[in-house]
Design a binder for these strands. Structure first.
Lengths: 193, 193
DNA sequence: AACAGTTTATACCGAACGGTCAATACAATG
DNA sequence: CATTGTATTGACCGTTCGGTATAAACTGTT
């Protein structure tokens, strides 16, 4: 039997993810992916099949290792109101700490919807659905426990929270600094007062 | 004196604007700009100087002819509460009617902040500032007239409204359909109840 | 008719793009 | 040690990119 792979595939995916994350699909060049992953051009095509399949792999990795785990952590708090507030606290902190202004990989990909195929768009759509579901469930449970006002309609309010989260991430890539982002996050918290 | 310009510069700008608007700066190719404007390659460089100066021209045109005029119209209503509600009604309608999913040129450019120079980013930042200013003024005047609850802090609430507007436009380019967008718009209206 | 200024059309530039491929290096098997 | 089959490598492919250059066509003035 022959040789086994010599480079760490998961590590290469991590590096590739950062490239797509900060540059988007179109603007990320193969040359940059090669430079950042450290693996050779041919190896990249051999291991991942090309730019698009590699993008899908990194997007799935992000969705699994960042979005899903974050939401799982917050749900584990078993304190819906606090979970939502911490969510917004966290994305503001991440955005401010994100010196190269990558934003959120999923939200970035939403803005790029036009250039992606159905598979990618479905990954993104599913991520948004689950985030919105987290908000809705949190509101409902919070209401049942008396921590959140009963006159709030959970579904549309969950949509609004997702919208604010997206905006914080997008505006954070651009001209908005911490104070302004924090103000939006606070308004989000007010929405589940 | 010689010949006058034969093509309509303003019309060419309009066409070029649509290209940048839907594709963004990077993904818009000179070939497509030529095809859509109908003017020749050499003429384009002669008349506008190149891709980047042309982009700036179209962005300024958008800012002047769409954002500024829309806000002026709404302020002319002299009914702050209704102005805000109509704003959100309008962006949902535009987004739904926008079959090629261009979104909002200014908001799109925010997501692209990384690829643009200071001049472009300042045009965008100024647009956002003025939109936020419109929201803040509307809230303040509405409060003074007793149409909007006094316990609302105008500045952060204005930021939140801008955030919701941005999200509606971005999500509308992707997986969100009219009902979901309308839900977010309704939440925005609730914010100035 | 000569001229001036502009638009057109087309050819061309070097660079970067995504992607392919044949040669080589290599570890496990016989 | 020879064989086997994959991993690696760097050269190479055709295409497209933004931008330039040149020459011809055209219209108004002089």
């Amino acid at each position: 039997m022959p040789w086994e792979k010599s480079f760490d595939e998961e590590l290469a995916l991590e590096k590739a993810m950062e490239v797509f994350w900060s540059r988007g699909f179109d603007s990320a060049s193969i040359a940059e992916l090669i430079a950042q992953t450290g693996i050779n051009r041919g190896s990249l095509y051999n291991a991942f099949g090309g730019k698009q399949p590699l993008f899908v792999r990194t997007l799935l990795k992000y969705d699994r290792e960042r979005r899903k785990t974050l939401l799982a952590e917050l749900e584990a708090l078993d304190d819906p109101r606090r979970a939502i507030c911490e969510f917004f606290d966290k994305i503001v902190s991440s955005t401010v700490a994100d010196t190269d202004r990558k934003g959120c990989f999923l939200f970035n990909t939403v803005s790029e919807s036009g250039v992606h195929d159905a598979e990618v768009n479905e990954i993104v759509a599913n991520g948004l659905r689950e985030l919105e579901g987290f908000f809705r469930r949190s509101i409902e449970v919070g209401q049942a426990r008396g921590d959140i006002r009963k006159d709030i309609d959970p579904a549309p309010r969950a949509s609004a929270l997702l919208a604010l989260a997206l905006a914080i991430r997008v505006l954070g890539r651009g001209p908005y600094a911490e104070t302004a982002l924090r103000a939006i996050a606070d308004e989000a918290s007010n929405l589940i007062a």
